[in-house]
Design a protein around this nucleic acid. Structure first.
Lengths: 180, 180
DNA sequence: GGCATGGGTTCCATTTTGGAACCCACTGAC
DNA sequence: GTCAGTGGGTTCCAAAATGGAACCCATGCC
């Protein structure tokens, strides 16, 4: 499967990654949330080549994650700002940063400290269900396929660890037409 | 800046991306959360080349996100399972999927439907502060630098949109030694 | 022996990055 | 008017990563 076709996959993760899943894009967005808005400022902070930065910013604008806004005329100067679609990625970045803080920090701890302004405590992000307000663990989520999608999207259960099953159950799936 | 040095950056997002930020890793982890555990099963579902898959799985094991466990001896067969570190990425994936569902779906809607098992409703993920239980918006987060890090990590404010400022404030920062 | 299976590795062509230089419109200083 | 500076790029080429396909190897099944 080619990376370029990822945005047509019947999988929201694949489509999301087609937008923000390449090497530099999330770093760009992190800086957006920290208030960076200008090309050179991104370039200086990220150290990425201007070519790649230019490409990423353009794609993000094309896809609606960022928008260009003139902040002065004569000479025209534009800056990149998060759209609502871009701001909706905030939880992703917060959880990723927290994961890095927890598992990848050196002895000095987290480089940046996040405080929840409205309660004054250190921000400890949690995934909760908006319907019931309870925290959500991986096991608490049941995944079903939307019946509007007819190709099978979910894995065939493997009976993992069950050595008693016959040596070769129908693991092979029917031939598929370049889509999964 | 090279991608390979990202894991030494004083930024938890950069370090997290050094682990899970390349083209295929999050797709692999998505499948892990859906119960996929075997090499061929990943390969078949993702369509990625065996070479790349092998490389990604090995790196994930090296970094502690997955672990290999034998599910049978003679012949020895191993499977890949999420560790606690890997399971801690669940919120990241859930939010990414939800973002894709919201902004990138076609008319058929979300390919996979997620239900919160304990309350029975459609899972609507929310970022909340564990200290106060309230939802967290981007504006609600104040970011400070951990004083143990001496190099400046946060962007110099740009006074965006303020046309009244002098033409060239000290935007240039002092020369830095390959670290940001 | 011959074939299948899980779990890879090798080889080579195509794509993507990284590095560095170059470009262009505009401005303000001289 | 010229000249350097600035924001915001583009071009060119070499280095690295990816895609495709074939090959490998131990074991087990018949």
């Amino acid at each position: 499967m080619r990376w370029q076709h990822l945005d047509q996959e019947p999988c929201s993760l694949a489509r999301a990654l087609a937008v923000i899943g390449d090497r530099w894009t999330l770093m760009v967005l992190r800086d957006c949330f920290l208030g960076v808005r200008r090309f050179d400022h991104f370039q200086e902070r990220l150290g990425v080549t201007r070519h790649v930065l230019s490409d990423r910013l353009r794609k993000l604008v094309d896809q609606g994650v960022l928008e260009k806004a003139a902040y002065q005329e004569r000479p025209r100067r534009e800056e990149y700002r998060l759209t609502d679609m871009g701001r909706a990625l905030h939880p992703v970045i917060v959880h990723l940063v927290q994961w890095g803080d927890r598992y990848l920090a050196d002895k000095r701890g987290a480089p940046l400290l996040h405080e929840h302004r409205t309660c004054g405590h250190r921000l400890e992000a949690r995934l909760t269900c908006d319907a019931c307000g309870e925290p959500v663990a991986p096991r608490d989520v049941r995944v079903r396929q939307n019946p509007a999608f007819t190709d099978p999207l979910l894995p065939v259960p493997e009976t993992g660890g069950d050595v008693s099953r016959p040596p070769s159950p129908p693991t092979r799936r029917p031939p598929r037409q370049e889509s999964e």
